[in-house]
């Protein structure tokens, strides 16, 4: 920590006013990288969630859930081809307008440092999960050159985890420009770099946003077929 220069919020650039007291002096309090105002605009996903995709049930009408699982996940699980591939997804925050802006600046504008905003949260979440391998969802070579870095890899690295780059991606149109059905009925976009260490391992996939779950399930399918014991996932937004 730099005691002479006041830290600025990574998101809004305002100075962060540290509450200076005895507790601050004697404790090893974690460094704040964003201000309270911005922290307040990030809505944590809490309370009851879908047992598979981690979506919050709070703002969801009852007609969209079947027991402990949401309708979307039911549709996935009814399909034998996709059943049980993704054990469980954890998402940290609601994908509200504020987070949308932060993620857009992070991945489209390429403000790499914003990965640090989520580091503490990712650290504590992944720390609680049993896992052997952390695999970021890859970008195609073209997209990687365009952006300069892979956002999922950045999230892992900044949180102090070693990403295992076992997957590659075939170049295709941007996900965000496709509809749900288009996404689901896509041919496999990922390829696996032959990896003997995958056998019987517990894998955690990392991505920035969970939208339809199609990306994660396609990756999970490939990993399971190659011998992974289980596949869970973590995303920033849902």
């Amino acid at each position: 920590m730099n005691n002479f220069q006041q830290e600025r919020c990574l998101i809004c650039g305002q100075f962060i006013t540290a509450v200076v007291g005895w507790g601050w002096i004697f404790s090893m309090e974690t460094e704040h990288v964003i201000c309270e105002a911005c922290e307040g605009k990030l809505e944590r996903i809490e309370g009851e969630t879908c047992k598979i995709c981690g979506r919050s049930f709070e703002a969801l009408a009852n007609t969209f859930r079947i027991g402990e699982i949401c309708n979307d996940c039911c549709r996935w699980e009814e399909d034998l081809q996709w059943q049980g591939l993704l054990e469980k997804n954890f998402s940290l925050f609601h994908y509200n307008d504020f987070l949308k802006e932060v993620i857009a600046k992070f991945k489209y504008r390429g403000d790499y440092i914003l990965a640090k905003v989520f580091s503490d949260e990712i650290k504590s979440r992944l720390g609680n999960m049993e896992a052997d391998l952390f695999i970021p969802i890859p970008l195609s070579e073209e997209r990687l050159y365009e952006r300069g870095f892979n956002q999922a890899e950045a999230l892992l690295l900044e949180a102090g985890f070693a990403p295992v780059k076992m997957l590659t991606r075939v170049h295709s149109e941007k996900q965000s420009k496709k509809s749900r059905t288009e996404r689901i009925h896509l041919p496999q976009v990922f390829q696996l770099i032959p990896a003997p260490q995958l056998q019987g391992r517990k894998v955690i996939l990392v991505d920035d946003i969970y939208t339809t779950g199609s990306t994660l399930r396609h990756a999970a399918k490939l990993l399971k077929e190659a011998g992974a014991f289980s596949v869970n996932s973590l995303t920033i937004a849902r």
Binding site: R8, Y112, L144, G148, F149, N150
Partner: peptide, 9 residues
């Protein structure tokens, strides 16, 4: 403080 750095592809 207004600069960042990353492993650039």
């Amino acid at each position: 403080q207004q600069f960042g750095s990353f492993m650039c592809a």
